[in-house]
């Protein structure tokens, strides 16, 4: 499979094609980022059907409003990821009460990793995993609770039994550390 690297130039061209309602461009974006969007959504909502719905919403969002993605402000991955995460967190917060009542064990779907996923993206994800693993345990837990469990920093503080200010600073330190790891790995030109 030949896939152009997601450079800023590629993102500009793809955005123009999406604005021109070129369906093939949406297909390419899907092939490039569906595993990322779906995996992220599934990790947060822990419900395969909801993760599929979110994935569909995210790509439809790109299809319907391509002009809202501005490559000069950030990469497509960040744009899609932010949207997917926001939708997933909204879903979790909506479902939380229901989830508390219904203790059904949710099974994770089995699927093989997308062999087409770009090797570089896999490598970077691997580095980020390494960076997450190397965080002090209290920072890693704060990130897990906020990002993957959809908790607000106040809820993180309550769960961890720490002041709110400490929760905020743990999140900040952890995220900055990951950002600086990525920067030092010189991933920016294609992130």
């Amino acid at each position: 499979m030949t896939m152009e690297m997601p450079t800023v130039a590629w993102e500009h061209r793809t955005r123009d094609r999406l604005i021109a309602a070129d369906e093939a461009a949406l297909g390419e974006c899907y092939d490039q980022y569906a595993s990322f969007v779906y995996g992220l959504a599934l990790r947060v909502v822990r419900d395969a059907k909801a993760a599929e719905d979110i994935t569909q919403d995210v790509f439809l969002g790109l299809w319907e409003k391509p002009a809202c993605f501005e490559p000069e402000k950030g990469a497509l991955r960040t744009w899609l990821g932010t949207l997917a995460h926001r939708r997933a967190v909204d879903h979790v917060r909506r479902e939380e009460a229901r989830r508390r009542r219904d203790e059904t064990v949710l099974s994770r779907v089995t699927a093989t990793p997308d062999v087409e996923e770009m090797a570089l993206a896999l490598m970077t994800a691997e580095r980020v995993r390494g960076a997450l693993d190397s965080l002090p345990p209290e920072q890693r837990e704060a990130i897990q609770l906020a990002y993957f469990d959809g908790k607000t920093y106040r809820e993180v503080a309550v769960i961890m039994g720490i002041p709110e200010g400490t929760a905020k600073s743990r999140l900040r330190l952890a995220l900055r550390r990951i950002a600086s790891t990525l920067e030092s790995e010189d991933f920016r030109q294609w992130a």
């Binding site: 990322f36 995996g39 992220l40 995460h85 992130a191």
Partner: peptide, 15 residues
């Protein structure tokens, strides 16, 4: 936000 998105990328899974 870029860093946050990459945290999400550690969970990539084929739909």
């Amino acid at each position: 936000s870029t860093a946050a998105a990459w945290i999400g990328a550690t969970e990539a899974l084929t739909p």
